[in-house]
Design a protein around this nucleic acid. Structure first.
Lengths: 342, 342
DNA sequence: ATGAAAGCGCTAACAG
DNA sequence: CTGTTAGCGCTTTCAT
């Protein structure tokens, strides 16, 4: 650890800028962080000096003195998931524009997140903790609460977030799909996917909407990790459990795409309408484009970021739980098919 | 911005720990950061006091005084890309274990990366700059060099990295695939994908290996963004350009998977052997599992992290360019098929 | 192996 | 609207 930034280009400090602009150091500080406390003319002079000297604030000194951290710590599992990733981007966009720095810790799962991993960021005294997902372990919730900073959870709408929450109503998404299935006139709908957590919510909404049309979906639980192969298995399980099945709502797009690839090779299966949840980028590109529920992770991230900024600005947040809309994307995969004999 | 960490639980400082352990503050500091400078017994006392009081170092004070930053800034485009993501994880793993914090900035593309985005992290005085990819714009390279910290680029093996580089030999990957195609006895191989940058390298290696068997591949350039649909188009373009085509090497797995999904619906196309590059998780799960070249992003990340740590530790790095191996994964998609008439 | 004194660069608090 | 003074918490430097 031989690198010392001070060794190199001896850093330009507020003092240097102050001298250059003919003002005191504190005026430079104010011109940069609370511009309206400084006369426009003075501000201009300071800014020009900053420019000329290439001054960049030293966060270490600034945060040490002020007791304010510009670092927000985010915990994410599966960054490679496009939805999760969109959430990150949305949140980063909003927060970075206001001078905050997002520090991401990638974890295997929020369910197995260790106190140790949360504590690892403590030396940086993050101004807030953000979780892309919800934290369920009571012990961990306690560790987090003890940090005594604003906390944002995301994605699933639960009833008792640690502090703030922005998420989707998965039940509503399921409901939209149920209505669509009813309108299409499917007679033997199947739900395939998780039947716990958000999966349960999607299934409930789906069931609810179908009940309006006098239908009751058969549920095929998928417990293995999400994959194309799991989608294939679920498809087979669905027709085994409900031979007359004419439409399947998969709890996510990956399962649906996996099923669709296998169904394409078998006319007996190809007649079945398929739908997913999430609208990942590939879903619209399939040989038979996939009907799905679009959720905007970016939107979730942005709204979470905005809420956090307000909170960090000292505002009291009345509505600490925000639900984002999801939107049905109807594509060819749920166009009504001919009966089984083809 | 009302949150002041000092307002809350008035923070435990080295001074408090020192008092509790009956030593001076500097001894606490040493016990934590250079344990071998402190007598084991004293160290023990300090550690117990740290434990009892729940002391956590304040990075702002520490970095301010020492001039050493524990933050490493990483620029990534397309975190959702599983390879990129693996690189991040690998690098984070290694560096976090040594007390560094990875600060990730997600960008649209390293080719359009703005100086502004690099400067945005300057207030944190990152100890190093890491790019998952290579930086080509001369202006940007200059901005980066001016930061005067170690720089790591990754993924593509170029000749003139800014500083250090860990990447794959794409040419070697292409060569492996070429040898495999030759061994399988394909007579009319096609390459489909980018024919610039790393794509060109893959193609060159492929061509080189096939030349050994007296074969010359037809190249079908793909210029549009990578997608399933682009893979389909490339497949059609390949058979249009080389009607006798019996095997196609796609420059990445997404293209190959897209092609394979469409090929499954058409017996005339299904006879063509397909291969990809990258071995993403889905490639092994297809109805016809995909032959591809496996590249370990995690490995690249780790090795980059290790190299960086040595450099940050003051070691001189002799070999500043490191090539990681890639490995052919042979699967069913390149099993020899029957001639066209099927 | 340990300690005392000093100061990293900035901004809070108070003054004018 | 601007300035003066002091000190955030730590670790460097020098001393013992």
């Amino acid at each position: 650890m031989i690198f010392h930034y001070k060794d190199r280009r001896r850093s330009v400090r507020v003092e240097d800028v102050a001298y250059e602009a003919g003002v005191s150091p504190i005026t430079v500080s104010r011109a940069l962080s609370s511009p309206d406390l400084v006369k426009p003319e003075t501000r201009e002079r300071v800014m020009r000096a900053v420019e000329r000297l290439g001054y960049v604030v030293n966060t270490y000194a600034s945060s040490l003195r002020s007791g304010r951290s510009t670092i927000v710590s985010m915990f994410v599992s599966g960054i490679a998931n496009p939805h999760t990733n969109a959430v990150m981007r949305g949140c980063a966009e909003v927060m970075e524009a206001r001078g905050f720095h997002l520090m991401v810790t990638q974890v295997d799962s929020l369910d197995t997140l260790k106190a140790e991993q949360v504590n690892a960021v403590q030396p940086l005294r993050p101004a807030a903790l953000v979780f892309v997902g919800t934290v369920n372990s009571p012990e961990l919730r306690e560790v987090i609460v003890e940090r005594d900073v604003p906390v944002m959870e995301m994605w699933d709408l639960i009833d008792d977030p640690i502090d703030m929450l922005v998420g989707f109503c998965h039940r509503d998404g399921g409901r939209q799909m149920g209505r669509h299935f009813a309108e299409q006139g499917f007679r033997h709908p199947v739900y395939a996917g998780r039947t716990t957590g958000r999966g349960a919510d999607r299934l409930e909404g789906f069931t609810e909407a179908l009940a309006g049309a006098g239908l009751k979906p058969v549920a095929v639980p998928v417990t293995e990790p999400v994959s194309f192969a799991a989608g294939h298995q679920a498809l087979l399980a669905a027709v085994a459990k409900e031979p007359k099945c004419d439409a399947i709502f998969f709890s996510n797009d990956i399962l649906a795409i996996g099923a669709s690839m296998y169904a394409a090779t078998d006319p007996a299966l190809a007649r079945i309408a398929l739908a997913g949840f999430g609208d990942i980028v590939f879903s619209g590109q399939l040989p038979v484009p996939l009907t799905t529920v679009r959720t905007s992770g970016r939107d979730v991230g942005r709204r979470a970021g905005e809420m956090l900024l307000r909170r960090l600005g000292g505002e009291a947040i009345a509505e600490r739980i925000v639900a984002c809309e999801s939107l049905l994307q109807v594509r060819a995969s749920t166009a009504l098919r001919l009966p089984a004999k083809s």
